[in-house]
Structure formats: structure tokens, C-alpha cells
Amino acid sequence: MIIEILSYPFLVRALLVGLFVSLSASLLGVSLVLRRFSMIGDGLSHVGFGALGISALLSLQPMAVTIPVVVLSAFVLLRLSERSKGGDSSIALISSSALALGVVAVSVAGVNTDLNAFLFGSILSVSRTDGIIAAVISILTLFSYLAFYHRIYAVTFDPSFAKATGINTSLYTALLSLLTALTIVVGMRILGSLLISSLIIFPAAVAMKLRKTYLSVSVTAALEAVSAFLLGFFVSYGLSLPTGASIVIIHMVFYLLSSLWKSCQTRFRGHRGD
């Protein structure tokens, strides 16, 4: 089956783009989940959907509309959730409004726009240009993440200490939101706007069940993301299931297994401690 897949250029392209996006989303996810920003991924993907709908209505190049809109919203959302306790309600307000705008725009644009692809992704229709943009953005994300890894750690672990020792915390928060926004825009092609946030949250959630240091959580999250993507991709190909949803289901299975593992471990330790 693998050789069969590799013989189709569009499948290889989908595979590569998916791997890149999964990897960057999982690394960003560790920091976002730990800073209690996981809802932002969800909010941004809905904003992305709204932007896609409007670009379809105005017959504009989708990426040219989505990227600036989502990046801008990332800054606004991060600000809101940092500043006030009502941050989560404003995220919900923004994301459902964007979703509504998108649905209306798509329906006005007419029948030739595929609402399904916007909502649930269409990894197999990734074009050459999309592929290149995705690869460039993912490599950029991975590079910045690795280069600033220790500073992102410090800002995530203890923002007040980081600030007091002269680390520009708002700069790194801005970098984080920029990278998240870009990853979401690219990932929406694959998983669609309803499922993309799972690429950000699941790997971190699984890794935090299994590991206890920041480095091992990051590495585990990356490995989980890559294996869930590959497994989901092949399963969906083999059983003719929707790709995005299959990937999310594999993530869910990994999450359940890791929870089970953790509860067994705690119970075992509890007995040993008696």
C-alpha cells in the first residue's frame, strides 16, 4: 500500500505537507496548552473559515486573504486572553461570528464552492503552490521554535521571572501567535477549520500524560503527532475514510491509551506506597 501511495505525486505532496504541519502544530501546542491558550487555536481556525468564505465570495486568492486576517486575529485574541478573565468568552464570540460570516459568504458565493472542504479539509486536493507555501511556513516555524526554544520555555514556565530578567515576553508571545496563526492557515487545507485545533491540542495533551520534563514532553508530542498523522493517513487510504477525521480519531485513541497508562501507573505507585 505504501508503494502504491508513493507512486501518486498528489498523495506524496499531501503526505509531506501533513507531516510538516503536524510537526509544527504539535510543538507550538505544548507551549499553547501550558499557557492555557488552547482555545486560541480553535478560535483562529473559525476566523480562518470566515476569511476563506469571504475570499470565495470576492473570488480572491484564498491564502492572500486568510493569512493576514488570521495573523491579525491571533494578536487580538492573545491580547484578550492575557489581559482579562473574560478572555474565553470573547474568543467564543469572535469564533462563532466568524463562522457565521463564513457560512453566509459561502452560500452567497454559490454552489461551486465546496463548504465541506472548508469545514473538514481536503488533503488530497493540495495543489503544488499550496504544498510549497505549507513547506516554507512549516520550516520557518520549526526553525524559529528550535532557535528560541529556551526562551519560549522560560516565558511559558514563569512569565514574571522571565520579564524581570529582561526577556521581552511580549515579543515571544507575539512570535508564538504569529507561528500559530500561520500553522493554522496551512493546516486548514488538510483537516479543515473544524478539526485543525486537534493537531495543536492532542499531541501536547498526550505527551503531558506520559512525560514530566519539558524537553521530553516536546519530543513526545512531536513523535505522537507524526505517528498519528501517518497512521490516520494510511488508515483513511486503506478503508476509504475521510482523511482529516481519521487522523483526529487516531489522536483520540492515543489520548485514551495514554490516560489509561497514566491511571494504571498512578494506581501501581499508590499500591507500592502502601
Binding site: 529556551h150 520555555y153 521571572f161 522571565a162 524581570a164
Partner: peptide
């Protein structure tokens, strides 16, 4: 900092915490 500022469930090794002091 005051202890309330740090999340108690943050996955991190002691060495990672200490090293972040020299950034």
C-alpha cells in the same frame, strides 16, 4: 516571584528550571 505565579503542574526537570535563569 510569589509562588502563585508558577503553575504547579508544569512538566519540567529541575535542571531546565535552573538553566532558564541565565537567559
Amino acid at each position: 516571584p510569589q509562588s502563585s505565579g508558577i503553575q504547579r503542574d508544569f512538566p519540567s526537570s529541575v535542571m531546565e528550571v535552573v538553566l532558564s535563569g541565565c537567559l
